[in-house]
Design a protein around this nucleic acid. Structure first.
Lengths: 192, 192
DNA sequence: CACTAAAGTGACAGTAGTGTCACTTTAGAA
DNA sequence: TTCTAAAGTGACACTACTGTCACTTTAGTG
């Protein structure tokens, strides 16, 4: 009944992701995306009213995928297993962290659809926080995590840690092990 | 012999800083700066050939000011005093960290002056690394820092830590103390 | 085979930036 | 007072986006 599409929805979102990571939020353009998908700019506007709608739609989708994986943490028994699972997840999704940090760059004034996407994204943010806060609560209940540390500092650390630049190319296993050790027991020798 | 200037060099750089922090590297414009200084755009081009020259000049200047403070670390006796000094410096200069992170957004193709500024900035980066690496070396020599942790992970942590967002407005003294404790001894209870 | 409707196109108007330059203004020197 | 040169101006040409829309293309239907 209609002409064949030149790209699938999946290809589109994969291209958006690549371009966002490569050029950053502010330098992402519809021209760049159209070029990547080998179509004209006009075509993109058949699927999205404007750039912000496209980008917020993309972010909601990414967040959904990540939350799906993160929810599996509830099935893990005991704080230590949950902690390990989260760190592994975080290190397997360094892209996601970069994308997430772009959420704050979404402009304030938006069209209806983009605005509702933004609201949804805030809900997802909150859901993510709820899941992680549960893990921290368990850690404190099990007397594994230091009671007096504010939850938000603990959360902040876990998420900020993956943004540490590996300038000198420390091999990944050593890199991850080192970061995990500092998070758990610090960089100072015990007897100090 | 000449007309009176409408702004001092210091006012100019203060305006640049404010606008960079407020709008980010990509959304910094000469129009915005001119407006802030209450002059026309053309005036700015009397002092700088182009935007990148202005911004690299600004960054070199900021870096110089920071290095001046950082160098004082060499006068501190013993690793613990040096460590404390650095953390204090870092938390007193959260702006600087934001500015520093923009260095990676400077485009690759630049005019002569901007390019030489960029090179200078890289030297300063290196100088900063050298100073910090010395502190870490001392920490390991004094058996205060864990020998097996790569220097770059330790450095990365210290610098990334100040970017942790204080969403829930934990009071600053508690915030800083918590972060310092995690860095030194981790978020896990000792007996685990 | 002709019709339909989704898919795709490219020219268009609008906006917002950059860097340039001939010109105007003005403080101080001669 | 006149002259000079630095300081400042605003119009100009250019570039690179955004979002729109009348039009073309094409796979499948009747």
């Amino acid at each position: 009944m209609a002409r064949e599409r030149k790209f699938s929805t999946d290809e589109l979102y994969r291209a958006v992701k690549q371009l966002l990571l490569e050029h950053g939020y502010d330098n992402f353009t519809i021209s760049l995306l159209a070029e990547q998908l080998d179509v004209s700019r006009g075509t993109i506007y058949k699927y999205f009213e404007n750039k912000e709608e496209l980008l917020t739609e993309f972010m909601v989708r990414e967040m959904d995928l990540f939350l799906l994986e993160l929810k599996k943490v509830e099935a893990k028994r005991g704080f230590v297993a949950q902690f390990d699972y989260i760190l592994e997840l975080v290190f397997e999704n360094t892209d996601f962290h970069q994308i997430l940090s772009m959420a704050s760059l979404i402009p304030a004034h938006l069209t209806k659809k983009a605005l509702s996407n933004k609201k949804r994204l805030e809900q997802q943010h909150f859901e993510m926080y709820r899941l992680l806060a549960d893990v921290i609560r368990l850690g404190k209940e099990e007397k594994k995590l230091k009671e007096h540390l504010p939850d938000s500092v603990i959360l902040g650390f876990i998420f900020q840690v993956i943004a540490i630049p590996n300038y000198f190319g420390v091999p990944k296993p050593q890199w991850v092990a080192s970061i995990k050790e500092i998070l758990m027991h610090g960089m100072f020798e015990q007897d100090n």
